[in-house]
Write a protein that binds this DNA or RNA. Structure first.
Lengths: 150, 150
DNA sequence: CTCTATGCAAAGCTTTTGCACGTTA
DNA sequence: TAACGTGCAAAAGCTTTGCATAGAG
């Protein structure tokens, strides 16, 4: 089942409609390999379907998020970032506080943390928006150009 | 060395000044047991020292953050949250996406994750703002009042 | 034909900034 | 007394909302 099929069926189930704008946004989001902002998604969607409005992007992202097809990442200080949850497994997103880059890391080695938080605190981790802040490799090297070891 | 002493000495070291407003904000932040918003900090600071301005709160929080005395948490969809880093060890903050509550959890059992991200990706995790989104116990129970097991 | 979605523009909210005045050291 | 900090108000930036119209089912 493709992502578009899932979207369509879930829209229908809940009485929503499938418009060219929603199709364009979904299509654009398939091309993103990292979480991106509403503004970027808007600009790319405009290239696909002219005239799409910023409000429509926000409203569609909200629908996609409600349906669980999009995860929302609160990156650093600035805007929200959105990422389509394809049929892939959840990832940890490493957000660099210096340059804003986002790196996806497999989750599978770390589900111990998720299980622990559930067992001990009955806290249900939202694995689709698991974000960790820090400094990425590149920025570290720029900060400490002459140190090679930790 | 108290937190205020540390603040004072670090301010002096860097040529900053110790004003009644900064003292009030520092004092108020000692009373917070969970990260809170600039607005809340402002309101409480007003009770201590009348006339403090919102801008001053933001500017002081920035100074405190630069000095490493305050950690900044990007909670859920809304505002930034600020927490004084006392002399305590780092914590994981569990942010509930439903009610916005924040729970602090000891980090020590999970530094394996931090080490792994360093070894494998050379990503330096900012442990002072480690935040995980999900649904807290209370909100889970409200959602599923008749289910007791996961 | 009905009800949802869109576009537009304006408002909302948090956070930042410019500037003149007060205060600290 | 020389910087630095504060208050005020206005601006900035992202996101939301109201309303009339267009379009999907």
């Amino acid at each position: 089942m493709t992502c578009e099929d899932r979207f369509l069926s879930q829209l229908h189930q809940r009485g929503f409609r499938f418009t060219p704008q929603r199709r364009a946004i979904l299509q654009v989001m398939h091309l993103l390999d990292a979480p991106d902002t509403a503004e970027v998604i808007l600009q790319r969607a405009l290239a696909v379907t002219a005239g799409i409005n910023r409000s429509t992007v926000y409203r569609t992202l909200e629908v996609l998020s409600d349906l669980g097809l999009v995860s929302v990442i609160d990156a650093a200080d600035d805007q929200r970032h959105y990422l389509l949850m394809g049929d892939e497994e959840p990832h940890i997103h490493l957000v660099c506080q210096s340059c804003g880059s986002v790196t996806a890391v497999s989750f599978t080695k770390h589900d111990g943390l998720v299980n622990h938080l559930w067992d001990e605190h009955h806290f249900k981790v939202n694995t689709s928006s698991f974000t960790i802040s820090g400094i990425c490799r590149d920025c570290l090297e720029k900060q400490q150009p002459h140190r090679d070891t930790a």
